[in-house]
Design a protein around this nucleic acid. Structure first.
Lengths: 196, 196
DNA sequence: CTTATTATTGACCACTGTTCAGTAAATCCA
DNA sequence: TGGATTTACTGAACAGTGGTCAATAATAAG
């Protein structure tokens, strides 16, 4: 068999992405393979490479969508001008999103933190959108002349939260005194913002 | 050829670990394979599985050693009782260690944060040692009745730092305004402790 | 001196990401 | 209409992965 054309190129890309997303959600990033995606959409492995540059590009495309979905959630947060309560509401949205999409978020962190691959511009742009929201929320804590400070703080907060949600739940370190991710995250945001 | 016994079992384990460490240091965790280690020490792949439970166990053993080396560095820090300056000295040791052992530390984070594998008890113990040092350093900031608070704060700080050093340097987000890992880490520790 | 144990091999398994010559369908052009 | 060209797709192949295990030979035990 050759050329079938029962789907347009864009349709097929869409179907492949949806399938990859489903596999990550249900079985984890580790279980995602080109062959699995190909088999599930009823095409050969080679076709995947006709749609995506390589395996990493496929993962990145899923991650971009995850960041887009997250930014959509963030968009619903209306800033009031009270930095502390605004930041805490953003944190709630963040934690809710992760608890609703644990595997997709893990994929985001795992793949998005790899230094040996170039992250696509689109992914970095979505990341930047999230940064800007945090920046806007905490802006009232800074003078007009310390814009750079606000810029840094938003990134420090983001990276720190990433570290906290990456801490494996099964590690005795956490379970011993039954400290939840939520408790840690709230502690961080509270203390860090208070320190500014 | 069979049974050679030109090395004792412990010797061979030692040689394999040293080789694995060298590969991670020079080529990164991604380049570490059983076959590569085997070839380099002049044995067959099967021998690696005679020395280690599996591939993950080999990595974990390297990570345990890395944590031991780090704890040795931490041991040199003499606490003065001034929480802020003690914490900052620990941070310097932490940053120095990472800059001296970037790949080994990356391996530690990558493999030590995986939720799909059981981290060996020895690794968690070494991690706990590090926590205790941080806990001891910041203890003066807490009343006697809020030991749990100190316990949490040490872990929050640790996880947050991990997030910061995991942020990929190549991401435009960091380089744009030339913010270094060191600057971010110091910002975190400063603001977080000030907030307590 | 035989027996049991142990260390080591190397072939093998099922899998991975990736490439590419070949093929057939769709499209274009005369 | 019909032949040439472009395009989508396959499936076999490649070099590699982690992992297993019967076979073997050297050592240790009785």
């Amino acid at each position: 068999m050759a050329r079938r054309a029962d789907h347009s190129r864009d349709d097929l890309t869409e179907i492949a992405l949806a399938t990859a997303t489903r596999i990550i959600e249900t079985e984890g990033l580790q279980s995602l393979t080109t062959r699995k995606v190909a088999a599930e959409i009823g095409y050969s492995p080679g076709t995947i490479y006709n749609l995506f540059e390589d395996f990493d590009a496929l993962i990145s495309r899923v991650n971009i969508r995850t960041m887009q979905k997250f930014n959509a959630s963030l968009g619903k947060v209306q800033l009031t001008g009270d930095a502390i309560s605004d930041a805490k509401e953003i944190l709630q949205v963040y934690l809710d999103f992760i608890s609703m999409n644990p595997s997709l978020w893990a994929s985001n962190i795992t793949h998005g933190s790899r230094e040996d691959i170039q992250q696509p511009a689109e992914f970095l742009q979505e990341l930047d959108k999230a940064f800007q929201k945090v920046e806007a929320a905490i802006a009232p804590l800074f003078d007009a002349d310390s814009k750079r400070e606000a810029w840094i703080s938003a990134r420090v907060l983001w990276a720190s939260l990433q570290g906290i949600v990456s801490m494996p739940a099964n590690a005795r370190i956490i379970s011993e005194k039954s400290m939840t991710t939520k408790e840690m995250a709230e502690n961080l945001v509270d203390k860090y913002l208070r320190g500014i």
